[in-house]
Design a protein around this nucleic acid. Structure first.
Lengths: 90, 90
DNA sequence: GTTTTTTGCTATCAAAACAGTAGCGCACGG
DNA sequence: CCGTGCGCTACTGTTTTGATAGCAAAAAAC
C-alpha cells in the first residue's frame, strides 16, 4: 500500500484537490489556495511529480492523466464527507 | 475539507484499511498489522474514534457504520493503486 | 537596457508529529 | 497470590511540518 504512504502526508490530497477540473495553478496560486508553507508545498509537489500524479507545464501545475484518474476516484469521497460532517454535528 | 486533514495523517488510512471486511482487531493486533508505534496508534485511534469512524467494542476495534461507508469508497482506490504502481515501473 | 515585477524555489529555525522501546495499571483465570 | 493479556502511557531521539524572509532567473515595464 504505497498509496497510503503517499496520501498519508499532509497536503498531498489537498494539492490534488486544488488541481481538480483540469485547473492549472502556479506555485504561488497553490500556496494561496492551500494556505501552506512554501517549503512544504515544494517537497509535496516534488513527491507528487516523482509519482507522476502532477506535472509542471507552461501555465502552471496540473494533474497528469493518472492524477486526474485518482481525483476522479476521490470525488465520491467528497460527497461522503459532507454527509459525514453533518452527522458529526448531532 | 476536514476529511483531508484527518486522512492526511500517517496511518489513518492504513488503520481503516486493516479493519476492512468488518474485521475486529484489538489494540495489539492492530499494532502488529500496521507495524506502528503504540503511541502513534493510540492517538490515531483516538482521532478516528472522535470522528466516529472507528469504535471499540467488546471484541476489539472495528469500523463504525460511517467508517465502513468510507472504506467502501476507498476500495476502488485500491485497485487504481495497483495499475498506478505498475505504470510507475516503466 | 535598466529597473520592476513575477515565479519557482531555498534557508533558517521553532514547533509539532512520528518512531522505538520499556513498562504501567487493570481485569481475568488459575 | 501469580501469571497472562489487554489498552494505553512515558520517555527520548529523529523526522516532518510551519512560518517568515529572501534568492536567482525570467518576463514585463519603462
Amino acid at each position: 500500500m504505497a498509496l497510503f504512504e503517499l496520501l498519508g502526508r499532509r497536503w498531498a490530497l489537498r494539492v490534488i484537490w486544488e488541481l481538480r477540473e483540469n485547473r492549472h495553478l502556479n506555485f504561488r496560486e497553490l500556496l494561496a489556495a492551500c494556505v501552506i508553507a512554501p517549503s512544504v508545498l515544494n517537497t509535496r509537489l516534488a513527491e507528487l511529480r516523482e509519482m507522476k500524479l502532477v506535472q509542471l507545464s507552461d501555465d502552471g501545475y496540473a494533474l497528469t492523466k493518472q492524477g486526474a484518474a485518482l481525483l476522479h476516484l476521490l470525488m465520491p469521497l467528497h460527497d461522503w464527507a459532507d454527509d459525514w460532517a453533518k452527522s458529526l454535528k448531532d
